[in-house]
Amino acid sequence: MTAEGRTAGTVPVLRVRNLVKEYGAGEARVRALRGVSLDVERGDYVAIMGASGSGKSTLMNILGCLDVPTSGTYLIDGADAGRLDEHRLALLRNRRVGFVFQSFNLIPRMSALANVELPLVYGGVRPAERRARALAALEQVGLTDRVHHQPNQLSGGQQQRVAVARALVTAPALLLADEPTGNLDTASTRDVLEILDRLSASGRTIVLITHEDDVAGHAKRVIRLVDGEIVDDRRQAPVDGPPPRLPEAAP
């Protein structure tokens, strides 16, 4: 069994075909995505890179079922997102996608434990099971001693680890991380990337959106976007030994 609790098969976790996204109309029309196609297999760790305006954030929103394409198809874990109404799309997003955002997106007046439980509350999971699963997720990210702390009592790195635990608690088919180290210092960046490395080694499927080469270097595969098109898609040689350490911040 994979870490997602399903038997690995031939169906990719993500299958995207000819994805187009346009904004505006007429002369003001902007094509953010121009026929993007890709597969992400179960257990893969993919970094999607691109400069500002490359389309990577638009692609992330569509992959996470936060937006819909103008045309093209998108299947997640075999389910065709384009054929779902808003309610079923929300269920798909809650059950099969775990999100980690640059800004953490934690609820300020809730404890770390309550923040991690939140997706299970929306999913109708009973309180005892919610608590057990949330505690297990917090243990995975090394925060068993911070379960009752509120976000303002945690460092930025600890807040992001809570966000990773919240993303894991539903056992999603896909972990989708959007610039997860963008607001972190060097030490916290290293901690979060090491957690993602361990999750990948355990079989998690991860798609990481980033503009940083050091961060993308942790992934097994790097996809580069330019002007809404994939210009490079290559697998990286595995790194022997522990994950590479990032350079220390300048004084």
Rank of each mutant, 00 (worst) to 15 (best):
E22V: 11
K220V: 08
S54F: 00
V239M: 12
F101R: 01
P247V: 09
R6P: 06
T170N: 14
A216F: 02
N183P: 02
V141Q: 06
L168A: 05
I107S: 11
V222Q: 11
G124H: 01
G217P: 05
Y122R: 01
H149L: 10
C65G: 06
P242H: 06
T10W: 03
A163E: 02
L143Q: 03
M1E: 13
R96Y: 01
I76Q: 10
A112E: 03
R34I: 03
A134F: 03
Q158M: 11
M110C: 10
R95Q: 12
C65D: 11
G64V: 10
L106N: 03
Y74I: 08
S57N: 12
V40D: 01
D178Y: 00
Q140K: 14
E117A: 00
P119C: 04
L175G: 07
L168Y: 01
G72N: 08
D67W: 00
K21S: 06
F99C: 09
A137Q: 06
F104S: 01
R88H: 15
R88S: 14
K220L: 15
T205Q: 05
A250W: 07
D44M: 06
H87M: 05
P69W: 12
G98S: 05
V215T: 12
N94E: 03
G182S: 07
R234N: 08
T181G: 03
T2L: 14
G5S: 10
V222L: 02
R146W: 00
A114G: 05
T58P: 02
Q159V: 08
S52P: 10
E86D: 15
G203C: 13
V30E: 05
D227C: 06
L75K: 09
R34N: 15
Q153T: 07
T58F: 07
L246Q: 09
G55N: 07
T210Y: 07
F101S: 00
D44T: 07
G82C: 13
R93S: 09
P108S: 09
L59S: 01
S52R: 13
T181N: 06
D85F: 11
V100F: 00
Q150M: 14
Q160H: 10
V40C: 05
